[in-house]
Design a protein around this nucleic acid. Structure first.
Length: 277
DNA sequence: CCTGAAACCTGTCTGC
DNA sequence: TGCAGACAGGTTTCAG
């Protein structure tokens, strides 16, 4: 479930409450229960526990798809990967549910639960978040990330635009859903090489990315399958998982191809293969 | 530098 | 009903 809009939705809920959760800010950590060892990337569980127990959460923020939990000393970073979710429980602490990988309890009886069926998610504790997030590209909404810079970066590479937008070191936060939807919105064929985009296309694409992500956030993200709940953006998909359905613009059946091992959805008429325009 | 494949994992759905 | 195979919101690593 986790692309930028879903992660942002979770971060906002953890910070201020929402999505059925109460805020975790200002709660003090009482105990830690790691139920799948590999979930904790670093440090070792003994150090992790020692360094967070008794400490207080001061804020929750996001960088790319990372959730950053600020402590009065240090930062807990969480990456949800494919199937992770973070929820807050009210007292008393419930018995562990299936797929609960890490349970943090607070002194007041609330709990923070990292649930992750596929076990791809990871958690770090660090004094310097950039040690973990250092390779991320610009935040899509960063105003210093201008269309001109975007265009230049596109032309430094020669890669399928679909694959490049999924590369977190190129731009942070996009995943399969929002890349497909953004490329549709911009009218760009997913297998166009990045260095063939015109300045106008680059402009339009960056704008489409921002609008698509904003739309996702405003709808609390997308709920798909059994993993993520609470979002409505899945009802607004125009190409993602719409294979065979008529395009909302031109009526052509949406097609699915595979690009870089990822299912890729597009409208053959609205996203022509040509380099024109 | 690029693509493709494999690996890490479990669950769901489809088709035979 | 059972079972094989495809597929899933992500990232890393390795071969060519």
């Amino acid at each position: 479930m986790p692309e930028l809009p879903e992660v942002e939705t979770i971060v906002r809920a953890l910070r201020k409450g929402g999505r059925g959760d109460v805020s975790i800010v200002q709660r003090r950590i009482h105990s830690v229960d790691l139920r799948w060892a590999r979930t904790l990337a670093s440090p070792k569980i003994e150090d992790f526990s020692k360094r967070i127990i008794g400490h207080q959460i001061t804020d929750v923020t996001r960088r790319g798809k990372f959730i950053i939990i600020h402590l009065d000393e240090g930062f807990i970073l969480v990456h949800l990967r494919m199937s992770g979710d973070l929820r807050v429980t009210a007292p008393p602490i419930p018995a562990p549910a299936p797929h609960d990988r890490l349970i943090i309890t607070f002194e007041d009886g609330h709990g923070l639960i990292f649930n992750d069926p596929r076990k791809f998610g990871r958690v770090w504790l660090t004094n310097d978040p950039s040690e973990v997030t250092g390779n991320l590209g610009p935040e899509p909404f960063d105003l210093t990330f201008t269309p001109g810079i975007f265009y230049q970066n596109l032309h430094r590479r020669k890669k399928y635009i679909k694959s490049l937008l999924l590369d977190q070191s190129f731009v942070a936060g996009l995943g399969n859903i929002y890349v497909d939807e953004s490329l549709f919105k911009a009218g760009i064929f997913p297998l166009r090489l990045s260095n063939t985009l015109s300045i106008q296309e680059a402009n339009k694409l960056l704008e489409a990315i921002r609008e698509t992500l904003k739309d996702g956030i405003n709808n609390n993200g997308a709920s798909i399958d059994w993993v993520y709940r609470g979002g409505d953006y899945q009802n607004k998909f125009r190409v993602y998982q719409q294979t065979g359905k008529p395009c909302q613009i031109c009526g052509s059946p949406i097609e699915r191809i595979v690009a870089g091992q990822r299912g890729t959805h597009y409208c053959p008429k609205c996203q022509p293969k040509g380099v024109d325009k």
